[in-house]
């Protein structure tokens, strides 16, 4: 294979990986801090994508759609946490899985009612429609660069917030010892709501950003949810660093899988997971249970 083509595929893999990281990090933080396994996380990705579709039609630009979409998804996250997730903090994983499974059924059906079953395309912002020429015949779309840059930027902001702010310190403290930070007088209720809302917004933004690249269709949330699970399992649950490495590994495995083993593309991702689990049953950066 041409090395240039290989280079393009690598860029695609990194872009997909960075997108996955936005989703998986929310999943991982919510589990790390709140101890809740949230199956409905993929639904928020889907909702983000559909919001991008509707809002960009209303406002005429994807940029405005994203700016409007962030507060909407955060509010949705706040609402869902206050009404449903609250009941799950002291329950076992089985009940968490089932309640969030029920939420998925509801979200999927609401999506059918609001938007119907047809797939939709979301136009890219006009500024970003071009592509960079790489050779006479090959080029790389600007939007994908933009997508990677935004995801990378958000990842860096997330890292800085987690490592260097008081809020980030509380999240990390919550992840390592929940009872202790409650005892230290931190309003854990509000912290939980905020963390959950941020996780939802991250998934929503990922959906909005991905909308122009991938079509918006029913069931897109489930597909991405399972892959995000794989990422989180590979990285180690609750580890942001692990989620980052896992996301890039899965992004590349998926893209290379489609190039080298087209028949088994969707199996390649799970092969990587099986390999990691053989060596490290609690993921690359997992603390072990």
């Amino acid at each position: 294979m041409d090395w240039l083509l290989f280079f393009i595929q690598t860029l695609n893999g990194i872009q997909y990986g960075l997108l996955l990281f936005l989703i998986a990090s929310g999943l991982s933080i919510v589990f790390g801090v709140m101890g809740v396994i949230n199956l409905a996380h993929g639904s928020f990705y889907m909702i983000g994508a559909y919001l991008a579709f509707t809002l960009s039609e209303l406002t005429g630009s994807l940029f405005y759609a994203i700016l409007l979409g962030i507060p909407i998804t955060m509010l949705l996250g706040f609402f869902v946490e206050r009404f449903f997730i609250v009941h799950l903090y002291h329950r076992d994983h089985l009940q968490q899985v089932l309640l969030t499974f029920g939420l998925i059924l509801i979200f999927n059906e609401l999506q059918q009612i609001l938007w119907g079953g047809d797939p939709h395309a979301v136009p890219m912002p006009a500024v970003l429609t071009g592509s960079f020429p790489l050779s006479d015949t090959l080029s790389y779309p600007v939007y994908r660069f933009f997508l990677s840059a935004v995801c990378l930027g958000m990842s860096i902001v997330m890292y800085l917030v987690l490592k260097h702010t008081r809020f980030g310190m509380r999240i990390r403290a919550g992840a390592s010892n929940r009872t202790m930070i409650e005892a230290l007088g931190i309003n854990i209720r509000f912290l939980y709501s905020l963390v959950f809302a941020i996780g939802v917004a991250l998934a929503g933004v990922a959906g909005m950003l991905a909308a122009p690249v991938e079509t918006v269709y029913p069931g897109m949330g489930e597909q991405i949810l399972i892959v995000s699970f794989v990422v989180v399992v590979i990285g180690g649950i609750g580890s942001i660093r692990g989620a980052f490495i896992g996301a890039l590994a899965i992004g590349l495995a998926d893209v290379y899988g489609q190039v080298f083993l087209p028949d088994l593309a969707s199996v390649a991702v799970y092969g990587v997971m099986a390999g990691v689990l053989l060596l490290r049953p609690s993921g690359l950066f997992g603390r072990g249970t």
């Binding site: 589990f31 994983h93 794989v230 399992v233 049953p281 609690s282």
Partner: peptide, 8 residues
Amino acid sequence: TRGIYFIM
């Protein structure tokens, strides 16, 4: 694996 890992 165990617990939540097993589920996933």
